[in-house]
Simulated assay, not measured.
Amino acid sequence: MKEHVADVGDLEPGEALALELDGPDGSLVPVALVRDEDGEFHALSDICSHGQVNLSDGEVEGSTLECWLHGSTFDLRTGRPTGLPATQPVPVYPVTIDGERVLIDLDVTANLNA
C-alpha cells in the first residue's frame, strides 16, 4: 500500500530524510527518502548493511548515498553497494510522485540485487 510520506518541496536535490514507516507486518521500518542531485526521489533502507547506522545522515553524491560512518556508498536505484566496506545491498522501495505528494510502497521490495 502506498503511503504519503512527504511533499516534493520537503527535500531539495542532494538531501535525505529519515522516516519510520509501518511495514506490511506492522513493525516500524527505517527508510531513507532521498532526492538525488538530478531531483529524482528514491527510498531505501535507512540502515547501512555494514555499520548498522542511519544512511540518511550521509552524503548524496549523484545517484549514490554515502554512509557517514565508514564511507560505504549505495546505488539509490538498486541498493547495491558501490564502494567498500559494505558488500551487502540494502532494500529499496518504489516511490511514486502524485502531484506534490511523495508516496512509498513498503509492500514491494524493488531492489535488483541478484
Rank of each mutant, 00 (worst) to 15 (best):
residue 21 L to V: 10
residue 68 W to Q: 11
residue 30 P to Q: 07
residue 6 A to V: 09
residue 15 E to W: 04
residue 25 D to G: 06
residue 69 L to K: 14
residue 67 C to H: 00
residue 1 M to E: 15
residue 9 G to T: 10
residue 14 G to R: 08
residue 47 I to P: 00
residue 61 E to M: 08
residue 10 D to G: 12
residue 10 D to Q: 15
residue 110 A to E: 07
residue 47 I to M: 13
residue 26 G to N: 09
residue 20 E to F: 10
residue 52 Q to K: 11
residue 77 R to M: 06
residue 56 S to T: 09
residue 63 S to F: 07
residue 12 E to N: 13
residue 91 P to C: 05
residue 38 D to Q: 13
residue 78 T to D: 01
residue 2 K to T: 14
residue 42 H to M: 06
residue 36 D to G: 07
residue 66 E to V: 10
residue 101 R to Y: 05
residue 93 Y to A: 02
residue 1 M to F: 12
residue 9 G to F: 07
residue 89 P to C: 12
residue 101 R to M: 05
residue 6 A to C: 11
residue 73 T to I: 03
residue 29 V to I: 12
residue 19 L to R: 04
residue 69 L to Y: 13
residue 11 L to P: 10
residue 31 V to Q: 00
residue 56 S to Q: 01
residue 64 T to L: 06
residue 79 G to A: 11
residue 82 T to F: 09
residue 67 C to A: 02
residue 79 G to K: 10
residue 95 V to E: 06
residue 38 D to F: 09
residue 107 D to M: 03
residue 35 R to N: 04
residue 103 L to K: 04
residue 76 L to K: 01
residue 40 E to R: 13
residue 24 P to N: 13
residue 90 V to H: 02
residue 34 V to K: 03
residue 11 L to Q: 06
residue 87 T to Y: 12
residue 19 L to N: 08
residue 67 C to I: 06
residue 85 P to D: 04
residue 64 T to E: 13
residue 32 A to I: 04
residue 79 G to V: 08
residue 12 E to S: 13
residue 32 A to N: 04
residue 12 E to R: 14
residue 93 Y to P: 01
residue 74 F to W: 01
residue 59 E to M: 12
residue 47 I to K: 01
residue 78 T to C: 08
residue 30 P to Y: 08
residue 63 S to D: 14
residue 33 L to P: 05
residue 50 H to Q: 00
residue 76 L to V: 02
residue 99 G to H: 08
residue 91 P to S: 08
residue 59 E to C: 06
residue 62 G to W: 10
residue 70 H to N: 11
residue 98 D to C: 01
residue 61 E to V: 14
residue 47 I to Y: 02
residue 48 C to V: 05
residue 38 D to K: 12
residue 55 L to M: 04
residue 33 L to S: 01
residue 93 Y to H: 04
residue 10 D to C: 01
residue 105 D to F: 04
residue 50 H to N: 03
residue 44 L to Q: 01
residue 43 A to M: 10
residue 112 L to G: 13
residue 37 E to W: 04
residue 8 V to L: 14
residue 17 L to G: 03
residue 97 I to C: 05
residue 6 A to Q: 11
residue 23 G to C: 05
residue 46 D to E: 01
residue 18 A to I: 02
residue 94 P to T: 04
residue 112 L to E: 15
residue 83 G to D: 14
residue 44 L to I: 08
residue 113 N to V: 14
residue 94 P to K: 00
residue 74 F to T: 00
residue 10 D to Y: 00
